[in-house]
Design a protein around this nucleic acid. Structure first.
Lengths: 340, 340
DNA sequence: CCTCTGTCACAAAACGTTTAACTTACCAAT
DNA sequence: ATTGGTAAGTTAAACGTTTTGTGACAGAGG
């Protein structure tokens, strides 16, 4: 047996009222008490549900928002998505999630796809998307919220963490324990977050009036393999750093793998500060000190900002919400010399 | 400036053809070569995109499928979702992802939500959902594919791994290396996968004619904390096992954390086989031997089956696709006695 | 008793497609 | 020359809502 959904017409017939009245009721308009009851009964009896397609056709709203992310297998990102999804659901929005597997082509393509689905808003963790696409969405009155990375070439709301000071604090933390030669494994030079983190590294050196050994700055690609390679590079230096700061999760994994297959002991011979995944940090021996980002909060801010924009509130556009990271101390940093 | 999207009418006007012809063309019907060119030009010039809402209203299809999962922060699940999403996108479907945070209430609620969005199909990693809900979806001709767990009380397609033999093989692997006292950290007794894994543990003991010490069977809740607690239980036994098999990822994390804070060395004093996350396995020292599930494949099978069902092909319903796991050897299992 | 005001209900048009039924044009076969 | 068939195009209805403009009615104020 195949069920067939009932429509507003059926409800109208059942109650003897007109379609318009039913529609009014559904959308919170006021109807006579006696009618209210009959409508409610009819809806229950007929198991009526609004047809969102028909509604969407009229209102030009889909009650759907699009989320476009680099990867669904990145816990940093999915935590945020999870929060966003649940918050928006409370307001009746459903969330279409697309990942673009860090592929430039796919990123543009899936953005178009979301637009073609006429979502009411977009949350995007951008990588290499064409700024014009975002402009176009904005012109079509589809709000876009960027997460984690600001973009040049377009005015757009963005929620991110203070990456500069995240790095600043992590390296300062090492300074406080007496380290002076600190290596950094950076992300790609063309990625905003990576640039910011490197800036923090440089600025803290300036503030402490320490000269920077350029050999201690290494650029990776945010993937496991490069974390491994670059950590090995540090291990084989004639004059190696006493501590290394790794600037994202995947490269932290790689760095730990490199250390495991060497016979260098952490933190005795080398101290380490990683990034992003607290679960990982706790399961490694010795427990890893890491920089954690407030993922819940990022999701929350992004979702709320998007809701405001979708309501038409353009206040403070373009907004930049900049959240703070935190250092969770493990046992991977040696105290050479305590200054506190 | 706010752009306003052009419609099929505009294209008709631009080309001088009728709406119906344009529609036919869009949907792959054949038109005269000269008209084809004009239509294509018009579409380009007007930047025409089909309005999916209007189309959906007519066809009663949304080109949208729903995915309902226990958590977006579970890499096992998100890997599958990622695969599903990309496969279905190739066929023009978009994917609405909902997680229910292992909450029974939320699970039922979000299932309803997906139904109210009139998705064309649903992929569900079920936990405690009401079987009637699934029946109702099926009655409405919305195909549902279960992942990872079969369900009683309703006939439904399901894609899962052979959990029984996964456990069988893992424990047999330990037997082959000479272990005879093997502890198991199981999942909740009311969860299908957990039951299956325990059955495998029991069956392999039967096949090897080894008696089972009930103290070596411990039930957790698939969360980190219980992995920790139960591993500590094993460590404190008077007559501890020589090896432990942990049956999911989170509890594996917990078990490793427990081992790290004890002074028991792996694999010398205790051998360990974990579950599910190969990245984790490689980053732990010593590298962990684990059971890995073919997540890509699961996603692939589920997506393809769903596509078939959505096309109306009911062949072999209800299908049960049962995939095989694999053991990835690390260095966490000691050879007491090699039989090979 | 008349008019004004406010509340509620209604009819009908519109949103942008698809599709069934129909027309036309052309060509081949009788 | 007539018939039949096929391919391409057209017209108009339908999908299930929202919304605009009206009208009906009741009670208040004069």
């Amino acid at each position: 047996m195949i069920l067939i959904a009932s429509t507003i017409k059926d409800v109208a017939r059942y109650t003897g009222l007109s379609i318009a009245t039913i529609s009014k009721f559904i959308n919170g308009g006021s109807v006579k008490e006696v009618n209210r009851q009959r409508i409610e009964e009819a809806i229950r009896a007929l198991d009526f549900k609004v047809n969102e397609m028909a509604r969407g056709l009229k209102t030009n709203k889909t009650a759907t928002i699009g989320v476009l992310i680099p990867s669904l297998e990145n816990i940093f990102v999915t935590s945020i998505v999870s929060k966003v999804e649940s918050l928006l659901l409370d307001y009746g929005y459903s969330t279409i999630v697309c990942d673009y597997r860090t592929d430039r082509e796919l990123e543009n393509q899936k953005f178009d796809f979301l637009m073609s689905k006429s979502v009411d808003g977009i949350i995007l963790v951008p990588h290499a998307i064409d700024a014009n696409k975002i402009k176009e969405a904005l012109d079509r009155d589809i709000p876009v919220i960027l997460i984690d990375r600001a973009m040049k070439g377009v005015e757009c709301d963005v929620v991110l963490v203070d990456n500069l000071n995240a790095a600043y604090n992590a390296v300062e933390h090492l300074f406080m324990k007496g380290h002076r030669r600190v290596g950094i494994i950076c992300g790609p030079q063309d990625i905003y977050t990576a640039q910011e983190r490197l800036k923090g590294y440089i600025r803290v050196h300036e503030d402490y009036q320490l000269e920077i050994d350029q050999d201690l700055i290494r650029y990776g690609d945010y993937e496991i393999q490069s974390g491994m390679t670059l950590m090995n590079y540090f291990l084989e230096m004639k004059n190696p750093p006493t501590a290394v700061f790794v600037t994202n999760y995947e490269m932290t994994l790689g760095a730990v793998m490199a250390l495991n297959s060497s016979n260098v002991s952490v933190p005795d011979q080398l101290s380490l500060i990683g990034f992003d995944n607290i679960q990982l940090a706790n399961v490694i021996k010795p427990r890893l000190s890491i920089v954690v980002q407030p993922m819940q909060q990022i999701g929350e801010y992004a979702a709320n900002l998007l809701l405001r924009r979708m309501k038409g509130d353009k206040g403070g556009f373009p907004a930049m919400l900049r959240l703070k990271t935190e250092i969770v101390e493990g046992e991977s940093v040696k105290v050479i010399n305590s200054y506190v």
